[in-house]
Every structure is written in C-alpha cells, then in structure tokens.
Design a protein around this nucleic acid. Structure first.
Length: 301
DNA sequence: CTCGATCCCTGGACGC
DNA sequence: TGCGTCCAGGGATCGA
C-alpha cells in the first residue's frame, strides 16, 4: 500500500531512471482506472521534464520538445501538461526492457526514446492515471490537505483540533493531510500514545505537537528505509522497502507492545483496521449514546 | 459535519 | 487439488 514514503521512494527511483526521456508512444490495455485514456496520444513526443510527489500522487511534468523554452513563460506554463499517477493499493510504475514480456496486470506502457518502456502494472486497478492540462492539474491540487512533512505546528494543531472527527479518520483524510495512509497513521498514533478513536477537538495542543513530531520522524525514517513492503510494494527498481521491520503497531494484533508488552489490539476505526496498544493509547470516554439527556425535546421536522 | 455502508478489484489466506 | 468465503484497502459516493 503505497503511502507517502513509498510514493517518494518510487519518485526518487524514477528521477534517476527516466527523467528527461521522451515518450515515443503509449500502449493501453485495460483503461477503467484512467480518467481520459483517449487523451494519452498527446503524450507522444513529450519529454518527462520533472517527476514529483504530491501526497500519494506522482506528477510527471511534460515538456513539448524544445519549443517550451523559446516561448514566453506564461505560454509555456499553459502548455505544460502532466501525467498524474496514483498507485492505489497495488500499482507499480517502473521502467523495463522492451524485450521483457508484459506482466499479467500491466495496463499501460510508455515507449521511451532510449528503447526501454515505462510500465504501469496494477492487479487490483485501485490506482488512477490522468493526463492533466495545467488547469485540470490546478483543479486537482486545490483542496488537497497539508503536506505532513512541511506543515507547521500551528497549522497541524488547527487542522486536528478544529474537527470532531476521530483522529484516525483525520489522518487518513487526504484533504486534511496529504500522503498519510493506514500504516503511518497507526504507527504515529502508537508513538504519540493517542488512541485512534480520539476526537480531534479533544486532543490537547501538546498531544497534537507530539503527533506532528513523531509523524514527521516516522515518515522521514520510512523514506530513508525506502518504504514499507507489507504486501507487494516494490520501488521503481523492483526492490522492496525495509521499514516494515520497524512497525510498532500496524499488523501486530496480539503481539506484545514494544513499550509495555500488552497485546496490541485491532479495531475498526473510520472503516479501517486500526492497531493500537490498549494500555499506552487509552480509549476516549465512552461517548457512545448521543440520545441520553433531553429526550423529551422534539426535533422540528 | 460526520458517520457507516457500499462499490470498485484481485490475490492470498483459510476452511472443508 | 479445488472449491467457496472472507478480507485487505484508497477513494468516491450516497444516505442517515
């Protein structure tokens, strides 16, 4: 499950291997995960001018030959299109020798000007691809959450403490923080000793700052370790990451907490498996029944 | 605003 | 060996 560190790992690999290459042609197999497959012919002849990560998205900025540099900046910006790639759960984007047969689930292949192919392979097709003009890209980026690695203490606290949703849901919400997924949400909550079902508005300023700090530490460490390979994540070189060895909560149901030896528990929060230590991460107030008090009041309807 | 449910999709784990 | 069933999960969407 590629989250921020995994996507960053793939991006760094692609920067080394395909940056600057020109796309000669595009082959598309199944296309139900592509916004606008018919537009992909526009990629032909374009150069991969930059490769960036935005949350869990990869953005391959394209440049139309050499003409871009000659044009006024604004025109160039308007002409610049991007290929957006989201790996979903099982997506892989990696260069391959053209002679190697397609994997069973290779759905897109870009022929490059050095004879190789950049291939997108995704068994479950939970990923997404789109050819985005500048305005479509702006649209895509609008409404995205804060970058968890860049967010200030004040903004992090604000985004968490102004909400009544559970902290786990907030961490997973890409319009709150972009790039965090189930693994790193659980890992950071364990480290910060915060129960996943705690409500954002009831998290103290101090707890919020602790959470921000450990989240950043964990994400940075995971990037150094080239991500977590828990199911089938492989980077752009086909190599697995190592961070899964450092997981302290995720996937450890029944195993002893690294701090207090209490068995790690798993509950569903925000529709997702959430692993936590019931002792280190105390549950919030029961806050169950909402209809306790003024039952006599009639709701206007 | 927030929730849960449902759907998308396939492979892997598990039970028989 | 071969079924069937359940589960995993990021994100969109819908109804409560």
């Amino acid at each position: 499950m590629p989250e921020l560190p995994e996507v960053e790992t793939v991006v760094r690999g692609l920067q080394k291997s395909v940056l600057g290459r020109k796309i000669l042609s595009v082959w598309i197999g199944k296309s139900d995960f592509i916004d606008n497959p018919a537009e992909f012919t526009r990629l032909n002849g374009q150069k991969i001018a930059s490769i960036e990560r935005f949350g869990k998205f990869m953005l391959l900025r394209l440049a139309n030959g050499e003409r871009v540099a000659e044009k006024p900046l604004e025109d160039a910006a308007n002409e610049t299109a991007s290929l957006l790639v989201h790996l979903g759960m099982t997506g892989q984007l990696a260069p391959s020798a053209a002679e190697i047969p397609f994997d069973k689930h290779t759905h897109v292949s870009f022929a490059l000007d050095d004879g190789r192919e950049l291939r997108y392979t995704d068994p479950r097709r939970f990923g997404r691809m789109a050819y985005l003009t500048a305005d479509l890209l702006a649209n895509e980026v609008a409404g995205a959450g804060a970058d968890p690695l860049e967010v200030s203490a004040a903004e992090f606290a604000e985004r968490v403490r102004s909400r009544n949703a559970r902290i786990k849901a907030l961490l997973l919400d890409q319009s709150v923080f972009r790039g965090v997924g189930n693994i790193y949400a659980d890992e950071s909550l364990w480290r910060a000793k915060i129960h996943p079902a705690r409500v954002g508005s009831k998290i103290s300023a101090k707890e919020a700052e602790t959470l921000r700090r450990v989240l950043q530490e964990i994400l940075n460490r995971a990037i150094v370790m080239r991500g977590s390979s828990i199911s089938d994540f492989l980077d752009a070189n086909g190599e697995p990451g190592e961070y899964q060895r450092h997981h302290r909560a995720y996937g450890r149901e029944g195993k002893p907490c690294y701090r207090c030896r209490t068995p790690i528990r798993r509950v569903i929060v925000a529709g997702r498996s959430s692993y936590f230590c019931p002792k280190c991460q105390p549950a919030p107030r029961p806050q169950k029944s909402r209809r306790r008090k003024s039952k006599s009041r009639t709701t206007s309807r």
